[in-house]
């Protein structure tokens, strides 16, 4: 498996968390809120597109909406591959963090 980038990982998590509300704007908002840094729309579009291409997320169109000028939303949804990838990332991450204490990292010594 090719490694996912950090932004791809975050976007997968956001898509999972937002469920039926998972379209670009809430994803971008959530990422900006949690990371404390503004994410541009294009920094969400690009990884989303890559993930769709890699078959980790699927998309469907909502009904047309007036506040979008009569245009639909594209709602994203994790595929089985996407969920597996997230589980893998979590497993690797947890193993990597095992025995590392945040307090020690803060102090700069083990």
């Amino acid at each position: 498996m090719n490694h996912l980038t950090r932004s791809e990982e975050y976007i997968l998590l956001a898509v999972w968390k937002l469920q039926d509300e998972a379209y670009t704007l809430p994803i971008q908002e959530r990422l900006s809120e949690i990371s404390g840094r503004p994410w541009s729309l294009s920094s969400v579009y690009a990884p989303l597109e890559r993930l769709v291409k890699r078959n980790m997320i699927d998309s469907s169109l909502s009904e047309a909406r007036a506040e979008r000028g009569g245009r639909p939303k594209r709602i994203y949804k994790l595929t089985d591959d996407g969920r597996q990838a997230l589980l893998e990332i979590q497993r690797v991450g947890q193993t990597m963090w095992e025995g590392i204490s945040a307090a020690a990292l803060q102090r700069g010594e083990i």
Binding site: L25, L41, L61, G69, R71, K73
Partner: peptide, 9 residues
């Protein structure tokens, strides 16, 4: 489907 244009709006 012009979804990005909707996002921008």
């Amino acid at each position: 489907a012009n979804t990005p244009a909707g996002d921008y709006e």
